[in-house]
Amino acid sequence: MSKSNSEPEWTIEIKPVSGWFNLHLKDVWRYRDLLFMFVRRDFVAVYKQTILGPSWFFLQPILTTITFTIVFGNIAKIPTDNVPPVLFYMAGIVCWGYFADCLTRTSSTFVSNAHIFGKVYFPRLVSPLSNVISLLIKFGIQMLLLIGFIIYYKLNGALVDPNIYILLTPYLIFLMAGLGLGFGIIVSSLTTKYRDLSFLVGFGVQLLMYATPVIYPLSAAPEKYKWIILLNPMTSIIDTFKYAYLGAGEFNAGNLMYSSVFMVVIIAIGVVIFNRIEKTFMDTV
């Protein structure tokens, strides 16, 4: 065999370090069936051997809403922009829940999938992407619940005002998924070697909720701290969401722009770190 006349064309080249921004999107596309299978697995397996099954999708936001209504509405008497408290909290919970789930699930990607990642190669990005998609199904089901409640309240003459901004929903979902994914892969990449961050994520997400207008309207926040809340990229998303579905508060395009830029930056940083870690994490995880 002479090497000179016909250098074969290699399909895969394995090198110590790959490029900074190589997302392997082509690979991800090739493995789209796997993405689908992971989503299916998550969906089918999660409520196996439970009696209530998928109704847990509903029970979770309903119980949280009841708790929030009693604690924050009736006891602490936090205003809700003149919207029925049940709807106000539920909208916030459903929305925040999606982001929080995306973040926490993605942030454990490497550690919880180590047994699979250690044996087979597939584009690692498939795992966090499948999380985001399977959580989207849960989010969709919970949205139906919310819409049901909105219709019920509307028919009973409550002060809710769903408007044209509902059309922004897909974009809001995209932003939340992006933020959750971006933060999540940064955390998951950093936790492969040092597990400290995974402790932070658990209660950090919970704390972050209080820095987001989930249980209070932005208008009720004291002027002094408002800038901190506005720095939070989730603020404008939750706000827009509540404005679109309930007519609460107001819509601020500038703030939403800020969140969009924030998401792009976070995703970019996440991808770079993810690429760095992808090849070495098996040695440290």
Partner: peptide
Amino acid sequence: SRVAGPTKGSIKLKGRVASLLEVGTG
């Protein structure tokens, strides 16, 4: 099988690769 990266050097492969480091992964 591209599960871990090399510290130095390179590997070139031609075609689809399937590795069975374990049966029943996943």
